[in-house]
């Protein structure tokens, strides 16, 4: 029996064999194929070119293509491994692999660190932390006075910056996360374990070529 995934997907830019992606990620070949269904849906929502553009990513996340969000921008940028402004299928699978329940915790912690290292300096700085808190307040309509924001940022920074050099490095981040494990909650997507159930149409209609 032929494989619909291979026949249709080979023409897509950034196509990669599911067996290769399965070997490099926590996903099985069936799961990679099910992810292709999700990828197709997102990548064809505005421009049907087999690539996820930022507006398509925003549309999938917020049901609104124009809703800008600092954190969604950061996630998009980290998924865009080639840094060419779009997410290809291979990038989508490799990046989502970090969110798999079976992915190593160290990978999740490192991903979150890069997410919060807004200026790519290798450190999370106080200014970045405050910028992120303000972005969250803006997004949530939560109102906190500047004094309260300063207090929250100060307290957190002192707690995390154990070396006291005014910036949070990866080692400090790892230690901080071990004390506040809830911070890693959104780095695991239970859905990814059931992805073949969520997108079963492909799996039922095809078999994998050896």
């Amino acid at each position: 029996m032929g494989c619909l995934y291979s026949k249709n997907a080979r023409n897509v830019p950034g196509y990669e064999e599911p067996t290769v992606l399965a070997a490099e990620t926590p996903f099985t070949v069936d799961e990679v194929q099910a992810l292709y269904e999700l990828f197709k849906k997102i990548s064809s929502s505005i421009i049907d070119d087999g690539l996820i553009h930022k507006e398509e990513f925003q549309l999938a996340l917020f049901r609104n293509r124009n809703r800008r969000n600092l954190f969604a921008d950061r996630v998009f940028d980290l998924f865009d491994l080639k840094r060419n402004g779009v997410i290809e299928f291979g990038e989508f699978v490799r990046s989502l692999g970090v969110f798999h329940p079976n992915a190593p915790m160290a990978d999740k912690i490192a991903f979150a660190f890069r997410l919060y290292d807004l200026r790519h300096t290798g450190y999370i700085e106080r200014e970045e932390l405050k910028e992120m808190v303000l972005a969250l307040l803006h997004e949530s309509d939560l109102v906190l006075s500047d004094d309260v924001v300063e207090m929250i940022v100060d307290k957190t920074f002192k707690d995390a910056d154990t070396k006291g050099d005014g910036r949070i490095d990866q080692e400090e981040w790892k230690e901080f996360v071990s004390r506040y494990p809830s911070l890693m909650k959104n780095m695991t997507l239970p859905y990814l374990k059931d992805i073949t159930l969520a997108f079963p149409s492909f799996v039922l209609s095809s078999e994998v070529e050896d």
């Binding site: 996340l61 969604a72 940022v153």
Partner: peptide, 26 residues
């Protein structure tokens, strides 16, 4: 938990932009 008892990263992690589960909603 109220924002005042959360640390800054806990507050940030509630962002909708970090909740990728919505990618899987049909």
């Amino acid at each position: 938990t109220t924002p005042l008892t959360m640390n800054a990263f806990e507050l940030i992690s509630t962002s909708q932009g970090l909740n990728l589960s919505s990618l899987f909603e049909k």
